[in-house]
Design a binder for these strands. Structure first.
Lengths: 342, 342
DNA sequence: TATATTTGCTTAAACGTTTAAGCAAATATA
DNA sequence: TATATTTGCTTAAACGTTTAAGCAAATATA
């Protein structure tokens, strides 16, 4: 039953007694092929269950119609939503995506890049691992002359397109909100400064405090890898201070969850004793008790914009990469963990 | 700077004044090439920053070294963990994966299959969408003669390899546990019967009740699409009964979460008034209040086994597909939502 | 009616690799 | 020393497509 030999363009050509070239043109609706021939080709193609060999056309055309995607993990609502929307947008234009995960590891990320280049992708859309400091591997992508687009976790130094939210302003949104709730000692469990987005959140936090004439207290500003586990540890550290904060702004929802667990276990009233704000608007922020105030990063828009940016490159002959940022405004979603007044 | 023309085997051959064939063999460590030549080839390859063109070798060899993966969504701990482990195992043998999401839609799934076949994948590993009843598209994969492996959401009728957990036994684990906690009216919010795994969970539930001499009450057995939203609705429905259940076993964690929200909002004490059990051991089950008892599906093992099953096929000349099940034992993780005695 | 243009194809080469077949030189064996 | 085997390559063709160049027939234009 299963006819193991796959149907090729030649098989169709033989049936109709025309050349393979004519078949190829007919299938691509070339204007120089008669309607009659086109119809015949399509009919035979269907009869023989013809499926174009993507490898052959990619080889001949010099493009694979594949886009490589690198994310720290797919198991997060933010990244999976970005990827899903990216995929939709790219599918429309005939591109497929290959998703790879770095698991926040620099080494894995390098291997992913090699894999994607090896697979002859037409472009790479990536969000960098926490660990990544050395940009050599990303330079490799650029030197191959294929478009590179970064989102969320980017690097100015690479001079490529970037799509993300305004992290600096987001910190202002959060601090403004907490001040309005009456908080005076606002701590920040931030990400590593070497990552641009976390650095911007820290800068925003610092400047927002200044704006409200609140002192910047170094023991209230902590760097973290923002895992749930580390969120627990850093929160515990804050509780150990002789002068505790009355609000904690955590730069990631998973770490905010860890902080919440510690607060709940210590029977500290949230938000009355300590208000809590996360970042990312992961679905679980609306599931836990109390629900966690967080920042919505517009993941679907980021995904779409990243795809569109790639498509714009793909249409041009030569890739001329330069730093071109698309910065979206974020949105503060106020939930129970910081809603003191009501 | 960016040398746009990529280095090919011919470039290396020209430098060394040997044939491209010799270069190809040298790179593949062919025993008929001298150590001296091999070394020279490797050196020049490195100097010229040679990267093999995967499309060309795939076309020539008739295999792409790509494995297609179809999951309902990546944004779930179960699926992302399965995929990650699958990827690791396949990478070891030189295979890369293309991940696609069906979003539980039959149409999207069909398009995914077309995409993957078009990309000339060497095999497909899939977990079927909730909507999928018609197996015609999956038959298409089989008829192409490439291996198809199903996991979690499978179908006996397709007669292909399947990796999953013992759903029937899992229901017994749950009912046994609830009975031991003193529950007498155990409801089941199950998945759609047409999906094999959910049917097995239902069968297990029914048989386990029988085993404990508990009556099967049709108003306590409800089918659902197992989203959080539907979990809320079905739980509300159960609360409307004049004779409420004292325990609810939900066939999916997301729906269990919805049920939990309704119970919390209705100020019903969990587990004292109504005990709750989910399925899947999603991380949030340990985050919510109270934490939800659930079933650990050994996602990493499922991923590894699926990969190994594919690799076994790939090594054989002819693909001889048949129903070959690998069924793993699941594990009950008891948490607060069903822990009545302590 | 003579020339120009359009239509509808074919021919041939190419994309970059792999591999079967073959050949000369070097080495081993009788 | 004569023959057989091994070593180390080369040659040529192929994987399935696409596309530039070209050509004959049909049609349009002057």
């Amino acid at each position: 039953m299963s006819n193991n030999k796959k149907t090729t363009i030649k098989d169709i050509a033989n049936v109709l007694n025309i050349s393979p070239a004519a078949v190829s043109k007919a299938l691509h609706n070339d204007s120089r092929i008669s309607a009659k021939t086109k119809e015949a080709v399509r009919r035979v193609a269907k009869d023989l269950n013809y499926q174009p060999n993507h490898l052959a056309s990619a080889l001949r055309k010099g493009k694979s119609n594949l886009v490589g995607v690198i994310v720290p993990r797919t198991n997060s609502n933010f990244f999976s939503s970005v990827v899903q929307n990216m995929e939709e947008e790219l599918n429309k234009e005939g591109y497929n995506i290959i998703i790879t995960q770095s698991n926040e590891s620099y080494n894995k990320e390098c291997r992913n890049i090699d894999t994607l280049l090896f697979t002859q992708v037409d472009g790479i859309i990536a969000s960098m691992a926490n660990e990544t400091i050395d940009l050599q591997y990303y330079e490799k992508i650029k030197s191959k002359g294929i478009p590179l687009i970064l989102f969320d976790r980017g690097e100015n130094d690479l001079n490529v397109d970037y799509i993300g939210i305004n992290d600096y302003d987001s910190s202002h949104l959060i601090v403004d909100h907490l001040v309005e709730q009456g908080c005076k000692r606002i701590a920040h469990i931030g990400g590593y400064k070497h990552t641009r987005i976390f650095n911007n959140r820290i800068r925003g936090y610092v400047d927002a405090l200044k704006k409200h004439n609140l002192p910047l207290n170094s023991e209230l500003l902590i760097e973290s890898d923002l895992t749930t586990k580390d969120g627990r540890e850093k929160m515990t550290q804050l509780l150990g201070l002789k002068n505790r904060p009355d609000a904690v702004y955590v730069a990631g929802d998973y770490a905010a969850l860890g902080a919440l667990q510690v607060l709940n276990e210590s029977n500290i009233k949230i938000p009355e004793e300590i208000a809590l704000v996360g970042f990312g608007n992961e679905p679980f922020t609306a599931m836990v008790t109390p629900t966690i105030t967080s920042i919505n990063q517009h993941s679907s828009e980021i995904g779409k914009q990243a795809a569109k940016t790639f498509l714009a490159h793909a249409k041009k002959e030569k890739v001329k990469q330069k730093l071109n940022k698309i910065i979206l405004d974020a949105e503060l979603i106020v939930r129970d963990s910081s809603n003191i007044k009501n």
